[in-house]
Every structure is written in C-alpha cells, then in structure tokens.
Simulated scan of single mutants.
Amino acid sequence: MSQSVTIKSNKYGINLVLDPEIGFDELLKDVVEKFKASSTFFKNAKLALSFEGRKLSEEEEQQIISAIESNTSIEILCIVENGTRQEAVMKEQVEAFYDAVQQQYENAAAGNGPEQFYRGTLRSGQVISSESSVTIIGDVNPGAKIISQGNIVILGALKGNAQAGCMGDRNCFIFALDMQPIQIQIGDLIAKSPDKPEPKRRTLRRSKTPEVEAQIAIARDGNIYIEPITKNILNNI
C-alpha cells in the first residue's frame, strides 16, 4: 500500500499526513485506498479532519472529503487547521459538546424530528429552514439566516441571524464556535447584537470570553444569554 497518505488519530478526529511531491490525482486515489483499508475501524464515525505535509486549495480539500465520504461510512464534520486557536478550541470542546447533545437528542420528544446537517458557508440572502435541530458545518455570514424548530449548532462563525425553537420553545439553544450574531431568537425572545441596539428588544448579554471561544446562547429568566460552553451548561440544557 502507498505510503503517500498516513492517518493519525487525535482528540477530536483524524489528522491526514499527505505526501507533498506526488500529483494530486494520484494522491486522491491513495486517500481512497487508505480509508477503504481502514473502513472497519472508522465505521460510521463522525470526525473533524486536519491536513499536514501538503498545502491544499479549498477545492482540493473538498475533493478529499468527497472521496472519503463516497467510499466509506465516515462523515467529516469540519476541517481544522493545525496549530491554530481553532484547533485548541476543538480539542477541548467538541467531544464533550457532542456527547451531551447526542444524549439530548436521544431523550428528546419524538416530535422534534431527526437532526439535519448542512455543509458549506451560508452567504447573504441564503435561508435554511428546518423542522428539526440543525447543524451547520461552516460559517453563517451577515445577511444569512437559519430558522429551526429545534436547536442550532454552527461549527464555524455565526455572523448572521439564527432563530431556534421557532414554534415558541424557549428550551432550545444556539451553539457556535465563533458567536458574533446580528440577531438571535430563541422561542419568542429576540435579541440583537449590542453594537446595533433596537428599542423594545432585549440586548444580548455576552460573557467576557476570548474572541474565538465556543459559546452557547440560551434563554433564561426572560432574557437571552451568551455564555462559554462548559459541561455544567451542557448538563442543564
């Protein structure tokens, strides 16, 4: 088997070490071969993916992801850049977050429906509407909007609008790795970003946290709070 591709596991997923010398088409075939050989080990896994050893364009990254998912039962949740603060956040928080969320979905009422996934950046003017909880694997840019009857999970930056529990459920939440919304709504509670206050609407109450620290928006005491993600928070949502 070719040694141009090496799979290394880490705390939040897998690190793909790629040969920088061979042609990309040949590399892509080697990626498929490597993952097929490891399909039993990674069966039905949901993983974050990082790359090492070779500079890839965004298109090449997407081709690799498509090749992996088309030839295995693996689901790639997101791409993490090595040596970045994003990687540190993922290491500390992704496993705990998904364990807690998965438990919540298993215990949720049947009417809440299955979770839905969307991969890609939502750009201005785009709207996603879901009758269940939804996970966005990418950013939500200003002018984009998510409307969900359940929870909203954004593995990226929330810079647009998000509405969770759109049928009036205040028990829903909104999670983002980078929380910078223009407006969020949980149930019947609406809040706008502090830099654009609006009369007669509640103001987001933001905890003092690092700029890219993962945060969660929850409704409590008639207000919407944005707080750093912790096991205590997850256990009480």
Rank of each mutant, 00 (worst) to 15 (best):
V80L: 11
V80N: 02
N82L: 14
N82A: 10
N82F: 13
G83A: 09
G83Q: 09
T84P: 04
T84D: 11
R85S: 04
R85D: 12
R85W: 14
Q86Y: 13
E87N: 03
A88R: 04
V89P: 08
V89T: 07
V89H: 05
M90S: 01
M90Q: 07
K91I: 11
K91S: 13
K91F: 14
E92K: 08
A96H: 10
A96V: 12
F97G: 01
F97D: 01
Y98G: 04
Y98V: 06
D99C: 10
D99H: 07
A100S: 04
A100D: 00
A100T: 02
Q102M: 13
Q102N: 12
Q103F: 03
E106L: 11
E106H: 13
E106C: 11
A108R: 00
A110R: 02
G111S: 10
N112F: 07
P114I: 05
E115M: 15
E115D: 15
E115F: 15
E115A: 09
Q116L: 15
Q116N: 14
F117E: 11
F117M: 10
Y118C: 06
G120M: 15
T121L: 10
R123D: 06
G125Q: 09
Q126N: 11
Q126S: 15
V127R: 11
S129E: 09
S130P: 14
S130M: 10
E131K: 02
E131C: 06
V134T: 07
T135N: 09
I136Y: 00
I137H: 02
I137Q: 02
D139Y: 01
V140E: 08
V140C: 12
N141E: 07
N141S: 02
P142F: 06
G143E: 10
A144M: 03
A144C: 04
K145P: 06
I146F: 13
I147Y: 04
S148R: 00
Q149F: 10
Q149I: 08
G150V: 11
G150F: 11
G150E: 06
N151E: 05
N151D: 05
N151H: 07
V153T: 04
I154S: 00
L155K: 08
L155N: 10
L155D: 04
G156R: 01
L158A: 09
L158Q: 01
L158K: 05
L158E: 12
K159M: 07
G160P: 05
N161D: 12
N161Y: 14
A162T: 15
A162S: 11
Q163N: 08
A164M: 05
C166N: 13
C166E: 08
M167Q: 05
G168V: 06
G168R: 03
G168A: 05
D169G: 15
R170V: 04
N171P: 08
I174F: 05
I174T: 03
F175T: 06
A176P: 00
A176R: 01
A176D: 01
A176H: 03
A176Q: 00
L177Y: 03
D178M: 05
D178P: 03
D178C: 01
M179Q: 14
M179C: 13
Q180L: 05
Q180Y: 10
Q180K: 08
P181R: 06
I182C: 00
Q183H: 15
Q183L: 13
I184M: 11
I184T: 11
Q185M: 03
Q185D: 00
Q185R: 00
I186P: 00
L189Q: 09
L189N: 09
L189M: 06
L189T: 01
K192G: 13
K192S: 14
P194C: 06
K196D: 14
